[in-house]
Amino acid sequence: MTDFVFLFPGQGSQSKGMLDAFDGISIVKDTLDEASDALGYDMAALIRDDAEDKLGQTEFTQPALLTASTAMLRLWREMGGAEPAQVAGHSLGEYSALVAAGVIAFSDAVQLVAFRGKAMSQAVPAGVGGMAAILGLADDVVEGLCAAASEQEDNVWAANYNCPGQLVVAGNAAAVDRLMVAAKEAGAKRALPLAVSAPSHTPLMQPAADAMAVRLQEITFNAPSCPVWGNASATTEQDVEKIRAALVAQLISPVRWTETIQKLAATGISRGVEMGPGKVLSGLVKRVERDMIVGVSISPDQLQNSLDLMAGE
């Protein structure tokens, strides 16, 4: 049975030692070595030890997560796991999904996301931007609060539509602060500042989008082997030039994750595997489509369990 989806996580799912459970597995080591060769630093040491506290810096976080997800994907295939009917990734995870669908070679993708992370960090000076998670309010309520909290050169926008009752906002730091106060006054269960300075998925990322538009033209894109869901459009695309453009749009557009999962379910997908570190996406999916079953891949045993689950065993 192949009526399942691979879901690839984005920033926030990383952790020191996130591949420790896979130590000694050749295909995982080979993937780490390939990333190291492409980037010019020791990816295995970064993920295992993080001695210089780089794993929280976006230009290192992004390639580390893509590498971990790809290593798990390759092990899945080596274990005889079936190919999914569709793939989707949350923010950075869209690049992992494109690797899984054969659109971008892993060595190209890991360099791309390192460039993406650096461009995002440079787009807005430290301290100027911010992000916050708003819990317990309807999306349209938060959207209205964003509009009310925004001023001429000081704005906040909806950035990640994660699941019903959870919307991440981003923008200028002062506007984000105003939005959090307004959200609490409007009855939000929580309004939590996030430990990131880059206001991802907002118009403030336009400099990063412009840089990525140029960089993406240097990369070979292939036709996808299966449908890949885009964050900005919550649709799938087969045309490689439109996929390329979607990655540029993604930086300045909100992640429409709730809508993506709803549309996936509408196509008949009822099962999936979170192909990467952590369980963030499996938790979000349960909030969107309660009946969708999502396995995880955080250890070889869990990967085997998910393989059995997707095989209907």
Score class of each variant (00 low, 15 high):
R116E: 04
Q152C: 08
G230C: 13
V240M: 02
D37V: 12
A123L: 00
G17A: 05
A97C: 00
Q152S: 14
A68T: 11
Q166W: 04
A44I: 02
P84I: 06
A101N: 10
A245P: 02
V196K: 09
G24L: 00
I261C: 04
L19G: 06
K16N: 14
A213C: 02
L46N: 13
A85T: 13
T2Q: 15
Q57M: 10
S150C: 03
S96E: 05
M205P: 00
L7Q: 07
R48P: 05
A158F: 04
W157A: 09
P227C: 08
V99A: 06
V296I: 11
N305K: 14
L65A: 06
S197H: 15
G187L: 00
A64N: 06
V285D: 06
E289M: 04
R244S: 09
W157H: 12
P224A: 07
L307S: 12
G165D: 11
E94W: 02
D291P: 05
E185A: 15
A101R: 11
P193E: 08
G312L: 00
D42H: 10
V214S: 14
P224Y: 10
V248E: 05
S96N: 09
L216G: 09
I25V: 05
L92M: 03
P224V: 03
L284P: 05
Q86K: 14
